[in-house]
């Protein structure tokens, strides 16, 4: 059945009672489960194209390692999207946070806890700024875009002030070990990602707050009339998202042993969420599905790397994937409104 909020599910059950055309059912089935099919097809395709290189435990590990920090962000990003806010500052916030952390931890050699606390404070400020702008009646995509420009500037400022050549090397022992810490042979970011998803799932599906998020994203006006404090929810969601993005930025920097202004791998959150059926306009979508969307994109990255596809082609593929994802969302919306 149609994915989405309890309200939508109930609605489609009623609509189903009147009988739908068979074609529409097939399209709906494809929209709901196409991602699984595409993911399986993708795995088969890469396995056939590069059998000895792709079917290895190291490839699986690389895919999961790539998904780890991005998945932690995606869990909170999905909640943000469901609440009706599009956050476009992810890459810049992640970069700024990692640079801030690196400057304090690596260059000033302050303790790990202090560096983390300072970074958290900075990212909270960023989330508050975005939500303040949204409170003024500015759409979230414009507010977060502007805030993203500011964050990019702060990142560059840190590089300017510390006189580093474009990035800050991050090799001080404790962090290096934490970022590459393994539990039972598995990098710890992977269980951490599942924990993030579990928390996200519980918040969205088992709490009043989660119901409010769905309601607010689905119909802000109706939610406001029912006494839901939209501004407060937006603030909580955006601040959480900024803090988590910052932490993920630090994890990525720790893995790469360097902090840079823009963090690669965080820009695909929107594509992954849209693939998984989260509505761009908010109010519907299932958080657990976005995990498949993420794995799909990570597998694509690693697979194309194994096949040695040229950088421009790779970028073209990911660019087209984004275009395709928003087209899918548009088709879904049109079907839902019919």
């Amino acid at each position: 059945m149609a994915s989405g909020s309890p309200v939508q599910r109930a609605y489609s059950r009623i609509a189903g009672g009147y009988g739908r055309s068979r074609n529409k059912q097939i399209i709906q089935f494809l929209l709901d489960n196409g991602l699984f099919i595409a993911f399986v097809l993708e795995l088969i395709l890469f396995a056939v194209a590069a059998p000895d290189l792709f079917i290895r435990s190291r490839t699986l590990e690389a895919i999961l390692r790539l998904s780890g920090p991005a998945g932690i962000v995606l869990a909170s990003y999905t909640i943000t999207l469901i609440s009706g806010q599009i956050d476009l500052s992810t890459a810049q916030v992640g970069g700024m946070a990692s640079l801030m952390f690196a400057a304090v931890f690596q260059l000033l050699e302050w303790p790990l806890g202090v560096a983390l606390a300072l970074t958290v404070v900075l990212t909270i400020a960023v989330g508050l700024l975005s939500s303040y702008l949204i409170k003024q009646g500015i759409p979230s995509f414009v507010s977060t875009l502007a805030v993203g420009v500011v964050c990019g500037g702060i990142g560059f400022l840190i590089i300017n002030l510390t006189k580093q050549p474009g990035m800050i090397r991050l090799v001080r022992p404790p962090l290096r070990d934490i970022a590459n810490f393994e539990v039972l042979g598995v990098p710890f970011v992977i269980p951490l990602m599942f924990v993030a998803y579990a928390i996200g799932w519980v918040v969205l599906n088992q709490t009043r707050f989660g119901a409010h998020i769905y309601a607010m994203g689905g119909n802000p006006a109706a939610a406001a009339l029912n006494g839901i404090n939209a501004i407060r929810i937006a603030r909580i969601v955006l601040v959480t998202n900024a803090v988590i993005t910052g932490m993920a930025g630090i994890l990525i920097a720790g893995r790469q042993l360097a902090a840079q202004p823009g963090v690669e791998g965080l820009g695909q959150s929107l594509t992954a969420a849209l693939f998984a059926g989260v509505a761009l306009s908010g109010g519907s979508g299932k958080i657990e599905r976005t995990l498949i969307g993420l794995l799909f994109l990570s597998t694509l990255t690693i697979g194309l790397g194994i096949l040695n596809v040229a950088a421009p082609v790779r970028q073209l593929i990911f660019g087209s994937a984004f275009v395709f994802a928003i087209l899918l969302d548009s088709i879904r919306q049109q079907l839902a409104s019919r």
């Binding site: 502007a146 805030v147 500011v150 500037g153 560059f156 400022l157 840190i158």
Partner: peptide, 14 residues
């Protein structure tokens, strides 16, 4: 510094 110019640009947009 470039960073400050970028920040100013961001706040100009805000």
């Amino acid at each position: 510094p470039t960073g400050i110019i970028l920040i100013v640009r961001g706040f100009a947009l805000v």
